[in-house]
Design a protein around this nucleic acid. Structure first.
Length: 514
RNA sequence: GCGGGCGUAGCUCAGGGGUAGAGCAUCACCUUGCCAAGGUGAGGGUCGUGAGUUCGAAUCUCAUCGCCCGCUCCA
């Protein structure tokens, strides 16, 4: 465990040291759980986006991409369920220091009465044997009736309290029911506090005129509200998908673990619209497809595992996570959800617009079912970074730090360096860069010993290192060093482009993971 | 929010009432020339912030702020 924590620390400090990720607003002592992507981080992030976008949009003629606004009509969040489902009343037990959802505590309390009824039924069954009529028993047995009345009463009171958002009453209710913490066994509770998971802000510059709107907590809704626009203008036929990359905002109660859980984060989502009844087929299809996309990167299959949800969100009828072995252990990297027709149906209800597709084969209209693939870009970034960071012990016993980022994602593709900064070698190196820069992100470095420069490039993850030496001036050959094997090869300058392109091009990735 | 840890140079840290230190990094020059380790020199810190004690505080006291870790939510 300690080892794992240290690993995350190493990733964080490496990320900072080499310009991948900086703590946000650092000169003002930082802002909790907010990070800025630096000069190399921005490149890596863009490359990841690119790989995703091309694999999803470019490789699928039935998928198109959009870029919806972060601001959306407030009704959107009413429809999606975020307004109701993501306002959690929380309460802490002062003795055990554990935090609970206050409404869940009450529900669990109510559950006890349900268990009691079950026990009574079991008793009844035992007593009456084969002649036992459960329906009649439930309706007539005085114990059961008493329990049921209690359940009904408590449930309606809870509903009432939740609907009025009366936090004081909720705490009083918990105290009245003598609910205790399962850990400490005490009823020493803090006040109930509301945690709104959505960030609100004001739209409209004149005070008083302003309407409260939210920063989107997920990008998916931008796709759903545009379902009809895209379907009609793109003449899309089911099944088809809409992809989007964009920021989303969640006021997490606790945002932590570096860029794994941030309040401002970026999602890469695709909603795939299918015929009702065919959703589980497509769900399986996308689960496999997305897994392939990940594994094509070559970080190692052992880093991935599936986690199928047993407990499903309010909108889903099947859900699985692709989990990644982060420095903190296996955690969710991507979610594949079968969202049914929940979202479109709700939007249809609240907007009054018909969000359906006329299927000529079936000769009828229906609200499509949706399969969602949703990956956290920042998490993907962390996955790539943490799996790539290695400390190697070389044959001679010395150590090297290498960032073996998949070449297609690496910020710099090639470093070109003169062996010495004399005899015109720098000019020659510059000349090579001036050709390569049209295809690749290049870096020039002439400072320090050549060995030191190699190690610097290893540390930032540049896959190829080209060195110009005196022989270069005679026959136009250079040495090219492979970051991972440290092997060098002497090649002609005119072959450089081909050699590098073969390895850093997205094409190969897309062939295997697209 | 609660509990724990930590704030001294870009990084890692030492120092513990008497005017700020090391290693690495950075920059310049010299040297070397294919795997981070040569030499010389330079720049860089109101010791997180504020108050108190003291002749004197980076050091002691109090407060405050920030960051990190854990706990319930999620991509």
């Amino acid at each position: 465990m300690d080892k794992k924590e240290d690993l995350l620390k190493e990733v964080i400090s490496h990320a900072k040291e080499y310009g991948y990720v900086f703590p946000s607003s650092e000169i003002y002592d930082g802002l909790a759980a907010t990070y800025d992507y630096g000069q190399l981080g921005a490149e890596l992030k863009n490359n990841i986006k690119n790989y995703w976008w091309k694999a999803m949009v470019q490789m699928h003629e039935e998928i198109v991409g959009i870029d919806a606004a972060i601001f959306m009509h407030p009704k959107t969040w009413k429809a999606s369920g975020h307004v109701d489902a993501f306002n959690d009343p929380l309460i802490d037990n002062k003795d055990s220091k554990k935090r609970y959802r206050a409404d869940v505590l009450v529900e669990e309390h109510i559950e006890k009465y349900r268990d009691k009824i079950k026990k009574d039924v079991a008793k009844g069954l035992k007593k009456f044997g084969e002649s036992f009529d459960e329906t009649q028993f439930l309706a007539t047995n005085p114990n059961v009736k008493r329990s049921q009345e209690k359940i009904d009463l408590l449930e309606s009171r809870l509903k009432n309290i939740l609907e009025t958002d009366d936090l004081t009453a909720l705490k009083a209710f918990i105290e009245e029911l003598n609910i205790v913490c399962p850990i400490s066994g005490t009823a020493n509770w803090t006040d109930v506090r509301q945690f709104n998971l959505m960030f609100s802000t004001e739209l409209g510059s004149v005070a008083g005129d302003a309407a409260t709107i939210y920063l989107r907590p997920e990008t998916a809704q931008g796709i759903f509200v545009n379902f009809l626009n895209v379907q009609k203008t793109g003449r899309m036929k089911i099944p088809f998908g809409i992809a989007q990359i964009g920021k989303a905002f969640r006021n997490e109660i606790v945002a932590r673990q570096f860029i794994f859980r941030m309040r401002e984060f970026e999602q890469m989502e695709m909603q795939y619209f299918v015929r009702p009844g065919e959703e589980l087929k497509w769900y399986a299809y996308w689960k496999e497809k997305r897994t392939k996309w990940h594994k094509a990167l070559g970080l190692g299959d052992a880093y991935y595992r599936h986690h199928d949800h047993v407990k499903l969100a309010h909108y889903a009828n099947a859900a699985a996570d692709i989990e990644f072995d982060f420095p903190m252990g296996f955690k969710e990297l991507e979610g594949i959800h079968s969202r049914t027709d929940f979202d479109l149906r709700k939007h249809e209800e609240l907007s009054g617009k018909k969000l359906q597709f006329f299927d000529p084969e079936l000769n009828k209209s229906y609200i499509p079912y949706v399969i969602e693939t949703s990956i956290g870009l920042d998490r993907m970034f962390l996955a790539v970074l943490s799996a790539s960071l290695k400390k190697e012990v070389l044959e001679d016993g010395s150590e090297r730090t290498v960032l073996s980022i998949p070449p297609a994602l690496a910020p710099y593709k090639v470093a070109v360096m003169p062996l010495t900064k004399k005899d015109g070698l720098p000019d020659k190196a510059r000349a090579i860069i001036n050709e390569l820069k049209f295809s690749f992100q290049c870096q020039y470095d002439e400072k320090d010993s050549i060995g030191k420069r190699y190690r610097r490039q290893d540390a930032i993850g540049t896959p190829f290192h080209v060195t110009v030496d005196h022989q270069t001036l005679e026959d136009n050959t250079v040495t090219i060093r492979d970051r991972d094997t440290m092997q060098q090869e002497r090649v002609s300058i005119s072959d450089l482009h081909k050699i590098i392109d073969e390895k850093v091009s997205l094409n190969n990735l897309l062939r295997h993971g697209g």
